[in-house]
Every structure is written in C-alpha cells, then in structure tokens.
C-alpha cells in the first residue's frame, strides 16, 4: 500500500459518501444517473468475486464490502425509496448502458491475464468501470443546472482513478516493477473520460460560477 493508493481509495469512498449524503439529505436523486450506479454494482460484484475466497488484508476486505454495500444502497434508494424514486428523471438518463456490457465482456474474453472465470470477470470489471461514468456525464451535459453535491461527486469519482494512476507509476518505478497493462490502460481511459468535466469543474470553481457542461 502506498499513499497514492490510500488517497485514491479514500477519495473513492468520499465520492460515494457525498452521493449518499445528497440522496439521503435532500431525498432527491435529480441529476444522478441510475444507469451509472447500476453499472457500478456490476463492476464491484464482478471485481470482488474473491471476497470470500482470497484474504488480502482486513482493509481490503472491509473496503470491498463497503463498496458493494453502498453501491447497492444507492441503486435501492433510486429504484425503490418512495420519495427518492419520484425524483429520478429517466427521460434524461438516456444512455444505452446495456450496450457497454457486451463489448466489455467480449474484450475481456479476448484480452485478459488468465483464461479463468475469476480473471475474465475481474478484467471485465476493469473495462466496464472505465466507461461506467458515461451515462452520468451524458446526463450532466443535458441537465440545465448541476447541483454542487452532484458536481463534487463526479469530481471525486474521477479524481480517485487519477490517484490510482499515480499509484501505478509509484509501484512500477519504486516497488515491484511489474507491468499491469490491463488496469493501467483501463484506468487511463477512465481518467481521460473525465478530462473535459475536470476542465469545466475547475473553471467554474475558479470563477465562482455554477458548473455548466457544454452540450
């Protein structure tokens, strides 16, 4: 474990807490893409299949359970909570996210480390996570006003993977010198997808203006 990875995990956890706070405090999920949240449930379930079969550390196990639990809780809130589900606007959550599943799965069948169920699904989860934010970004571009908590949520969600890129650089040059091509490339694609969001987010923060993404 290094500082970049710990900071990345904490930033990721913080983004989820910001989202849960927004939904729980305002009893509203306006501006949040249910599709991105559903993709994240699939990402965590396929990523953490070894939750009960492989013990890495207490930290690792606890964080996996927290990520699976919170991602389920968010989808439950948005689908079934009597007040929150009324605030979900499915007309603006238009991205056809199921179209992401098959290409990621096929790519995982072609490009993986080992051809085992666990490894192919783990690889699938990395490819899927790289594109899971797309429905949310598309929704933000279409929504007129982005509330601060939603903007902060997306910012921290993008920042966590950027910190992981620093973690991979650190690990490769200063620790085990092992190439991890699949997480590296997926993580770079994932972080790159946030590039224009980061630009407009920081610009709005500097100019003390409301965050607005060009359509």
């Amino acid at each position: 474990m290094n500082l970049f990875r710990l900071a990345g995990d904490m930033t990721h956890l913080f983004s989820i807490i910001v989202l849960l706070l927004k939904i729980h405090a305002t009893k509203s999920c306006s501006g949040i893409s249910l599709k991105t949240q559903e993709l994240y449930v699939i990402v965590f379930l396929t990523r953490y299949l070894d939750l009960f079969t492989r013990f890495v550390s207490l930290y690792n196990t606890v964080m996996k359970i927290v990520f699976i639990g919170t991602s389920f809780a968010i989808v439950w809130y948005m689908r079934y909570h009597k007040v929150v589900k009324q605030t979900y606007n499915k007309d603006e959550d238009t991205f056809k996210h199921y179209f992401l599943l098959l290409p990621c799965f096929v790519l995982a069948l072609l490009l993986h480390n080992e051809f085992t169920t666990m490894d192919v699904l783990w690889t699938f989860s990395l490819y899927l996570e790289a594109v899971a934010i797309l429905p949310q970004l598309v929704l933000l571009q279409q929504s007129r006003n982005i509330d601060n908590l939603t903007g902060n949520y997306v910012f921290f969600l993008g920042a966590y993977r950027g910190l992981y890129v620093l973690n991979w650089i650190y690990r490769y040059f200063l620790q085990d010198h092992r190439a991890r091509w699949i997480p590296w490339i997926s993580g770079l694609v994932q972080t790159a997808l946030y590039a224009d969001f980061f630009y407009y987010y920081i610009l709005s923060w500097k100019k003390h203006e409301k965050l607005k993404l060009p359509a």
């Binding site: 995990d9 990721h12 990523r47 492989r54 890495v56 964080m63």
Partner: peptide, 10 residues
C-alpha cells in the same frame, strides 16, 4: 509467463 502480479488493489 511468470504469474501475474497479485490482485491486491480495489
């Protein structure tokens, strides 16, 4: 092909 690096990341 040496065994792949451990999957110790989240």
């Amino acid at each position: 092909q040496s065994a792949q690096p451990a999957k110790d990341e989240l």
